[in-house]
C-alpha cells in the first residue's frame, strides 16, 4: 500500500496541498484527477521524489520513501510531458542512453523488441528533432517495456495518452493490462475519463480539497 499521510507542499509562498491524505492501490491502477492547476503533476512529482515535502510522509510498505530514495527510484519509471529525449539523438540512442542512465544495460535485440512494443522499430534511426509529438511520446513510453526485465514496480505517468493516435493508445492500453496482470502499480494523471476499462482507484484532488475546506 502507498499512502500519502498528511502531505503538505508549498511552492514559494503558495500552498499547493496541505494535509493531503490518500491511499493508493498497490498493485493496481490509480488515477489522479483534478482541474487544471489543481496540482496533479506536482503530486506525481512528489511521489516520484522530485519535490521535497513540507510536512507529512509518503509511505510505501510502512516506510517513508523520502529516506529510502535510492531504493524507491529503482522501483519506478517516470514519464511526463517533457519526455526526457534529446533532440540530437535518434530514438534508439535515446532509449539506450536512458537504460544506461538507470544503470541497466541491454542488448540491441532487446532494445529493438522494446521499440516494437509500441510499433516504434521503424523509427528507431530517426532523430527526435524530426519526430512528431505523438512519436516522441511513444519513444518515451517505450521505456515501460523494461519494467518486465528490471523488476520495476511502479509507473508514474503524467498525461501519457496526450498526442497518441488511436492505434498507439490501443498498444499502450495493452501494456497497461499486462503490467497490472504482473502485479504492477500505475499512478497516472489524465483528463480522459474513457481511457481505462480496468478497475481503478481515483484520487480526485478537487474533491479532497473541498472535503478539507469543509
Amino acid at each position: 500500500m502507498l499512502q500519502l499521510d498528511s502531505v503538505s507542499i508549498n511552492r514559494g509562498n503558495s500552498v499547493i496541498f496541505s494535509n493531503l491524505k490518500a491511499t493508493l492501490n498497490t498493485p493496481g491502477l490509480n488515477l489522479i484527477r483534478g482541474k487544471n492547476g489543481s496540482g496533479k503533476t506536482t503530486l506525481l512529482r512528489t511521489i516520484a521524489g522530485f519535490i521535497p515535502i513540507e510536512s507529512g510522509k509518503v509511505i510505501y510498505n510502512r516506510k517513508d520513501i523520502t529516506f529510502r530514495k535510492n531504493e524507491w527510484v529503482k522501483k519506478i519509471i517516470y514519464v511526463d510531458s517533457h519526455n526526457g529525449l534529446s533532440e540530437d539523438l535518434t530514438v534508439f540512442e535515446n532509449l539506450e542512453a536512458w537504460l544506461n542512465m538507470k544503470g541497466w544495460s541491454s542488448s540491441k535485440q532487446k532494445v529493438t523488441e522494446a521499440l516494437k512494443s509500441l510499433d516504434m522499430d521503424k523509427y528507431s534511426n530517426i532523430y527526435i528533432s524530426k519526430c512528431s509529438e505523438g512519436l516522441k511520446k511513444r519513444a518515451a513510453l517505450v521505456r515501460l517495456y523494461f519494467s518486465y526485465i528490471f523488476e520495476v514496480k511502479f509507473w508514474l505517468l503524467d498525461e501519457p495518452s496526450n498526442g497518441l493516435d488511436q492505434a498507439s493508445i490501443l498498444l499502450f492500453k495493452k501494456m497497461i493490462t499486462n503490467f497490472l496482470q504482473q502485479n504492477g502499480t500505475i499512478i497516472l494523471t489524465t483528463h480522459d475519463k474513457n481511457l481505462f476499462n480496468e478497475k481503478h482507484n481515483v484520487i480526485n484532488l478537487d474533491l479532497l480539497k473541498e472535503l478539507r475546506a469543509k
Partner: peptide
C-alpha cells in the same frame, strides 16, 4: 533541463 532529462536522472540510483 527543458527536455526533461534531469527528471529522468532523478529516477536513477546513480
Amino acid at each position: 533541463f527543458e527536455n526533461g532529462w534531469f527528471d529522468q536522472l532523478a529516477t536513477s540510483s546513480i
